[in-house]
């Protein structure tokens, strides 16, 4: 009798707990879905070929956002050029070569702290180092470098994790067959870790694409009548453009603001989806 009662009670508790957890999970997803739907509804009507391929005019109150889209593309690519090789190299060093000593611990501490620095501080740092000291001016180059520094910790730590996830036995076997450490890394470890590394790279770049503060003083232009010609030109960019038309331009048509937000959101979400696809495909193909 007693045990029967207890067991039924236990089931009730389990069901209750399960419902609570499900409810909480649903609530965490709601804001994301809500945001996407809201922006879609508010900004969807602004999206047209002209909006995507035209220059802004009438003090940005009409026309398109092409220079901002292209600018964000340039900045993302520029960030990738610097942060990807550097980040992967650092991850390889930390995962495959570094011994656990004082220096390594210092490097790790620096990376962790780098990840915690507010993005506006990166902006100021970039202004001081790249714009003024190295005299790159407010330019795509300076902004890309600033964004790179911000992105590095993400790329390093996800890449290192991906490298470490490759079974140790592959390394031992490879070395025992007469491979050098570098041959082992280049022929086996990197190939196996690549999907994980790519995921990290895309997530890092995605963050860079959406940031305003780091490019605020280093490369973003309020308005440019033409596309940038070189890496030493300033550029318009989606997040900064959104900030500008939301706060700096009076009587701004609201659907242009939301349209811009929608484009930025799609840009970032697309990168996210690519990362997810790479990861799930690699997982299905993985031989360990």
């Amino acid at each position: 009798m007693m045990t029967k009662f207890l067991s039924r009670n236990r089931h009730t508790v389990q069901r209750l707990g399960f419902s609570v957890i499900t409810l909480v999970a649903v609530f965490t997803v709601l804001p994301i879905i809500g945001t996407v739907i809201y922006i879609l509804v508010k900004g969807g009507s602004a999206i047209s070929w002209e909006f995507l391929s035209g220059f802004p005019h009438d003090g940005m109150r009409a026309g398109g956002i092409l220079p901002a889209i292209i600018g964000t593309l340039y900045l993302t690519l520029g960030t990738a050029v610097f942060s990807v090789p550097l980040g992967i190299a650092a991850a390889i060093y930390l995962s495959e070569y570094a011994r656990d000593n004082q220096v390594t611990r210092l490097i790790r501490l620096a990376i962790i702290n780098l990840a915690g620095i507010p993005s506006v501080v990166y902006g100021l740092f970039g202004l001081g180092l790249f714009v003024l000291f190295l005299q790159f001016g407010t330019s795509i180059l300076a902004a890309s470098l600033t964004l790179s520094i911000m992105t590095l910790p993400v790329i390093i730590s996800t890449s290192e994790e991906a490298l470490r996830a490759v079974p140790q036995s592959f390394r031992t076997v490879s070395i025992s067959l007469g491979a050098t450490r570098w041959q082992t890394i280049s022929r086996i470890i990197l190939k196996e870790a690549l999907p994980g590394i790519l995921t990290g790279v895309i997530l890092g770049l995605e963050r860079a694409a959406g940031e305003t503060a780091p490019i605020l003083f280093t490369g973003a232009a309020f308005f440019l009548p033409r596309l940038p010609h070189s890496a030493f030109d300033a550029t318009m960019a989606l997040p900064y453009h959104l900030f500008v038309i939301s706060t700096q331009v009076p009587e701004m048509p609201i659907q242009i603001q939301y349209g811009t937000a929608l484009v930025l959101l799609v840009f970032v979400l697309t990168m996210n989806v690519i990362a997810t696809v790479i990861r799930s495909r690699a997982r299905a193909r993985r031989q360990w």
Binding site: S169, F170, I175, S176, L177, G178, I188, K191, Q287, W288
Partner: peptide
């Protein structure tokens, strides 16, 4: 490196590298 080519080793757990049989042999 030369030593390890001269002295081969088989481990307790069979660890094939993540590639084809042929590629494993000629690695």
């Amino acid at each position: 490196i030369a030593l390890r080519r001269k002295v081969g080793m088989v481990f307790a757990r069979p660890v094939t590298l993540p590639m084809s049989i042929r590629e494993n042999i000629i690695y």
